[in-house]
Design a protein around this nucleic acid. Structure first.
Lengths: 346, 346
DNA sequence: CACCGCAATGTAACCGTTTACATAAGACGG
DNA sequence: CCGTCTTATGTAAACGGTTACATTGCGGTG
């Protein structure tokens, strides 16, 4: 009940193993008759080439490894969806893992993945890229997802968090809000820091309006907690949450406190995860092309594998998605989603 | 710049390859000195065993393959999270793919995965299990996730959709609603059919109340569409959506129609995805231990790999999660989540 | 002191592919 | 009718591990 090997197929088809291999790889030349016999024999034996043996001799695995910081919530399911789409389109497999912020853990995961994949996509908003690259021994191509420190020559696909947060803050200011609070992502998280900076800079540019910041951890729970804290002090007239999940938490806390959004207090998020538009009120947020980000990271891997050289990095400038929660004109339907992009060599 | 091999390590540590292998596999006996030299040499050379070579000789890949029908939404991200947790805990890798309902596609995906994994978890609410098993040639252990036809001896981890839907319908009846509409999942989807049957049977048991069914496809959009249709006809006093995503779509459509939930119309969902409790009003739904389902499927794979024999199937009896959307007492906080389970040999 | 048992280690076959190279068989022009 | 080219095919050596089996050295025993 052993699995059939290429030799079994060769024997049954009355050809050599080389011919069978050629048929399965569409390489070299094979006569029509031989090909037919091989395929028939392979079908009979239910032959599938052993991927380990193949990768041993070709030094390829046709697999892309993906390491994400977390797997909670819709952001990551969108990201995985985009990644899966791209790998499928290219006939690649997808090996998935996650790692929390801990660089040691990330290193372990990377090393374990190293020999099983041809390239790795890492989203690590904490760890130093140098550490990551070192864990790979410089041999496995690496593509970075999300903002971070120096990319060290690896392609990076990120969004311009500062610009997004700046634009959103400007939008809220433009709508007349003056006491805008910000619910930040966790300390040490680079994306979170950039969003916070965008918010701060926009306030500063507007005559130095006072800031009000509460730190969360990107989860719904922390958003609810943050809203609670904000309501306890001098009440802001708008809350800008560092991501949509926290905005959802805020929304719930505000509701429980008996406040109407946006009448009593405006609310905005960041990411534009799919549910945002289904909230009540629909959430004004910063539109991030999540799935597209994943897709391009995989394409970039494929490019490295094909050409041998790392391709260009790309920073997406996110677009405001104005919905009812910020009190502005309800314009959910317009949502053009024409993503501006900006090319940049690292 | 070749990757270091076991022979390089052996040479540098002045031992044989067998000793190096023993160190890396904690097998056989190795003296403390030899072990130290091997580890030092391996560190110097940044040696990582080639997984292809290893799988070629051990016939193991230490990888679990997972095939899901879709990757949209929070249900799947929860499922993947549970699966990832379990694989990590066991030192296994996770190869992920998805396939739509099409059995041919599922077969292709399965065959492509076959040699790369030790066992496969498949969630396929459409395809015939026989087809799946055939694609594997009976050699790769298979664990099924979700309801379906005959499992053919493979462990199956599912929830009792009928019981869940029946209980929810009873709950709505108990709350006084009499014109309860059901938004069903797509035709041909077994889980959807079971939920529909549960709804029907509960109505029948209650003196044969009239049913009102609209077919959706488990997406938010289809939920919104369904609610639109229901509002066009004789208006129900409660809507029971076949999953939470469609309930979210319904919620939005109802809101746009100017109806208050639950005052004007009650609403219930199925799955208890994490966001459900953050909706306005919080959604009454059928609690499914999503991540746990994924976790157990992986554990079952591990069991097969360890013992060689397929373990027991398990059907989870879901629990009602009563929140405000059904108009009953607001009891979100209680949510005990003590999952009843039911053992069953297939 | 011969012998046994055991711990530590080495040797080499094998796992299932790919592929460089060799070979064979026609086809064809001269 | 013979080189030469082309096309089709076969042979065997990698690829990098694991592991059965052989070997060595040593302490303990009768």
């Amino acid at each position: 009940m052993r699995n059939a090997t290429i030799r079994d197929v060769a024997r049954n088809a009355d050809v050599s193993v080389a011919t069978v291999s050629r048929v399965f790889n569409s390489s070299g030349t094979v006569s029509a008759q031989a090909r037919a016999r091989v395929l028939a024999a392979a079908g009979d034996l239910d032959y599938v080439p052993h991927s380990g043996a193949r990768s041993l001799s070709t030094r390829r695995t046709d697999t892309i490894g993906v390491i994400l910081p977390d797997l909670h919530g819709e952001f990551f399911s969108e990201l995985i969806r985009g990644i899966d789409l791209a790998t499928r389109a290219r006939g690649l497999h997808l090996l998935l893992s996650h790692s929390h912020g801990d660089p040691n853990e990330a290193t372990t995961v990377l090393r374990a993945m190293r020999t099983r994949v041809d390239a790795i996509v890492v989203m690590s908003p904490y760890a130093d890229e140098g550490v990551l690259a070192a864990a790979l021994g410089g041999r496995t191509p690496l593509v970075l997802l999300g903002s971070g420190g120096d990319a060290g020559g690896h392609p990076r696909f990120a969004i311009d968090n500062h610009a997004g947060a700046y634009a959103m803050t400007e939008h809220l200011l433009g709508a007349g809000y003056r006491r805008i609070a910000f619910v930040s992502g966790p300390a040490g998280n680079i994306e979170a820091a950039q969003r916070l900076a965008g918010y701060r800079d926009a306030l500063a540019a507007c005559g130095g309006l006072p800031e009000q910041v509460v730190v969360g951890d990107f989860s719904e729970q922390s958003g609810a907690r943050a809203a609670g804290l904000l309501l306890a002090g001098p009440r802001p007239d708008a809350i800008f949450a560092g991501n949509d999940m926290m905005a959802i938490g805020c929304l719930q806390a505000l509701r429980e406190a008996g406040l109407k959004v946006p009448d009593d207090i405006a609310l905005a998020g960041f990411d534009d995860i799919p549910i945002s538009r289904f909230l009540d009120p629909p959430l004004t947020t910063v539109g991030v092309p999540i799935a597209e980000l994943g897709r391009q990271a995989v394409e970039s891997c494929a490019e490295i594998l094909a050409t041998g050289a790392p391709g260009a990095s790309r920073t997406f400038t996110p677009e405001l998605v104005i919905r009812a929660s910020s009190g502005a004109t309800y314009s959910d339907r317009q949502e053009s989603r024409s993503i501006e992009e900006e090319e940049a060599r690292t």
